[in-house]
Nucleic acid binder design. Structure first.
Lengths: 171, 171
DNA sequence: GATACCGGTTGCATAGTGCACCCGGAATTT
DNA sequence: AAATTCCGGGTGCACTATGCAACCGGTATC
């Protein structure tokens, strides 16, 4: 108790924004989710946007506190911390897809970085569900019940083809 | 030229977050969209979350600059400024629905404020399209090609019923 | 002619962001 | 064994954004 009203309102959109409404949280989740970056240095160094270390640290802490990310030690390397998604953040897939779809329509996106968004957009809810199932296997340790090609691999493949096409036309 | 790289990256999700990634922009759009609040004082005073006037002013200016909102004078009242959505912000409906849906699943939403989200969630993409068509009529002046009950009215009706039910059970 | 309404602005304190650099411990290389 | 690299961060500082309250001149209403 006594922690009663810490929220601006009980509106679902508002509450979601209280959790996700800044410019970095969803970028970090995107990198873990689509880029499969699981370690701090990966998230820091391989970030397209160049997030600062203190911001990344603060966001990972926040996301962990809010149950969107878990952190566990790599048993082989004492220092290595493995960051994973939770069911809660895995269910952000539709949000991220819609955000990406909207960005593709109205903002100056780069072709290479938007192919993944296009594939997910075109694939529709059924593809999202398959992707979420894969994320559950990787991040939650759910036993894999799927056969056939991985959505993650398909997304990466599409990305690599776009990069190759871009280099061919510009170089 | 020479305004070249003002973006962190060309990723659709990142670019969307550069535009929408703060805790107020989407709340303002939500109020215009679902609450049909079209004037500054309405947005200021009838806000569930109690936005501050300088923040509201700054957000409306930003959103206008980014093409998500337009502002026009009410011909009858010289002071009155009417804020409207644009096609770009109308197409945020799926994003807002997914955000609301996610919030409903994982955050401490209030029953009254989340019925709209539930109706839109259950209605699916076809309902979203109908709602977007209505928004185009109201905000863009597109001639109405629809008959039958309005989605907006249905959402409001559901909200009022939830309020009544809440009052009955708690009072 | 007074009052309330209109869309904001201003000042100020506090909190968050962005940047560069630094840190000690653990793992790896030589 | 010694040196280097890798690990997840922390620190200091300047700048910007947020939140609050009080205020503003013009306009419509009574």
């Amino acid at each position: 108790m006594a922690q009663a009203e810490q929220h601006r309102s009980g509106c679902p959109i508002n509450l979601s924004l209280e959790v996700l409404g800044d410019s970095w949280s969803l970028v970090v989740i995107r990198d873990i989710m689509f880029g499969n970056r699981r370690y701090y240095r990966q998230l820091l160094g391989e970030s397209e946007e160049g997030i600062a270390s203190n911001i990344l640290s603060s966001r990972l802490k926040q996301l962990t506190d809010q149950g969107l990310v878990t952190k566990q030690q790599d048993p082989a390397h004492k220092q290595r911390q493995l960051y994973s998604l939770t069911e809660q953040s895995i269910q952000l897939v539709p949000v991220l897809v819609q955000l990406g779809s909207w960005g593709r329509k109205f903002l100056p996106v780069s072709p290479e970085l938007s192919v993944r968004a296009k594939v997910l957009e075109d694939g529709g809810p059924l593809l999202w569900e398959r992707f979420m199932a894969e994320l559950r296997v990787v991040h939650l340790g759910v036993p894999s019940s799927q056969s056939g090609p991985s959505v993650h691999d398909d997304l990466d493949q599409a990305y690599r083809e776009a990069v190759a096409a871009g280099e061919a036309s510009s170089g």
